[in-house]
Amino acid sequence: MADNNEPVIVGFLCNWCAYAGADLAGVSRMQYPTNMRAIRVMCSGMVHPNLVVEALERGADGVLVLG
């Protein structure tokens, strides 16, 4: 958790679907919590399992792999 007790979520968003979807949510001005940090990947298949494990080890409260 971060200092202020808010969960920290790491998100791996694939360029074509999830990242584009997040952009569209922005265009539509949909409001959502600030807890996620997005890492853009070309395909969700690009996310090595080690990255997910390391994210959790280093303190992320959750990991999203969206494709």
């Binding site: 920290v8 790491v10 940090r37 890492i39 070309m42 080690n50 990255l51 994210a55 992320a60």
Partner: peptide, 18 residues
């Protein structure tokens, strides 16, 4: 442009303050 090391660098930067 999307090597494991580069993705990892982003990950570590994201969690630097946690």
């Amino acid at each position: 442009g999307f090597t494991n090391e580069q993705l990892r660098a982003q990950l570590l930067a994201a969690l630097e303050n946690v």
